[in-house]
């Protein structure tokens, strides 16, 4: 057995897969990569003929989904209800309105005036306000009743979902591994020294360094971080980032730079990190404490860290 790993670009970010494998199991890394690539082809909003875009372009009515797409939509609805709508996959109009209308690495300056940007944001917020909400999508197994004008983006949970998918379907028989999709990861078992994995937590003020280490204690843990320090831009003198407040339809204004969350799955950690960010530091810590097996580290805008109770055990 040896710790083998693979790194590649997908889902608009860096994917790293590390696992304790025998030489003849090395193919599992390729299989995991293939799973990520396939997932991107099917559910990216930046690929015109993806399953997601076929649904987004659907005029409304009964729509037969693939089994995985149906599973994804059920997860999205569950988190939508659980977070009281803070996690909202139908935020796509606002994302496009603020300029996040293509893969982030392809975004350039739009050369717009401040007034033009304001009008664009207002329009996007208005469209979002009148869009069908997530709970208006009715699911019956793999058949969905799609309301007219329904559109969604799965970026809020997609990376966590695919990481859990690999752990479940590719590494089901592997004890020690971790999978990271741009920093949203799932760790299982131990490292080469037979200790729990030590997961560095990025310092938002010094993104190239870590402030803390989370010890997974040999458990399967999902760990994700969300913040306003990346996937951001500036248009017409107005700064924007990709965390949209569903109450305003605009980039969220919060007292947090970044939030790192531990949870039973990567998907849960991914969604809860965005939720806590939108809630703000005080309500965010309370939210974490209300969920068993969930903990968070919050870096305030001045860089000061605060911890929820559920995080202490892992530090």
């Amino acid at each position: 057995m040896a710790m083998l790993w693979k790194k590649f670009e997908a889902l608009g970010t860096e994917i790293i897969i590390t696992a304790d494998l025998r030489p003849e199991q090395k193919y599992l890394l390729d299989k995991a990569q293939a799973s990520v690539v396939e997932f991107e082809q099917r559910f990216s909003r930046f690929i015109p003929d993806s399953e997601l875009n076929m649904l987004n372009n659907f005029a409304g009515g009964e729509y037969r989904l693939s089994a995985q797409f149906a599973d994804l939509l059920k997860h999205a609805q569950t988190f939508y209800h659980e977070t009281n709508g803070l996690f909202d996959p139908v935020i796509i109009d606002v994302l496009e309105g603020i300029g996040y209308d293509r893969n982030f690495s392809d975004i350039n300056s739009h050369n717009l005036t401040k007034q033009q940007v304001e009008i664009k944001w207002q329009t996007a917020s208005s469209i979002y306000e009148h869009r069908p909400k997530m709970d208006e999508l009715k699911m019956n197994g793999e058949v969905a009743l799609v309301p007219p004008g329904f559109r969604l983006d799965l970026g809020g949970l997609g990376k966590g979902y695919v990481v859990d998918l690999i752990a479940r379907e590719v590494f089901a028989d592997i004890k020690n591994f971790w999978i990271s999709a741009g920093g949203d990861l799932l760790a299982n078992g131990n490292d080469e020294q037979k200790n729990g994995w030590q997961i560095g937590v990025q310092n938002p003020l010094k993104p190239e360094s870590e402030s803390f280490y989370i010890n997974t204690l040999g458990k399967q843990l999902g760990i994700a971080t969300s913040g306003v320090i990346k996937r951001k831009g500036e248009a017409g003198g107005l700064a924007w980032h990709h965390i949209i407040d569903p109450h305003t339809g605009r980039p969220a204004i919060v007292d947090i730079l970044s939030v790192s969350v531990v949870a039973p799955s990567a998907e849960t950690a991914d969604v809860y990190a965005k939720t806590i960010l939108l809630l703000g530091s005080k309500a965010g810590v309370e939210f974490a404490d209300q969920h068993e097996g969930v903990g968070c580290i919050i870096f305030l805008t001045d860089g000061a860290p605060i911890f929820s109770r559920g995080m202490v055990a892992y530090l």
Partner: peptide
């Protein structure tokens, strides 16, 4: 000598 695996880090993506 195998290149050591990168250290896992959770970060803003």
């Amino acid at each position: 000598t195998p290149t050591p695996a990168p250290a896992p880090t959770t970060k803003v993506s």
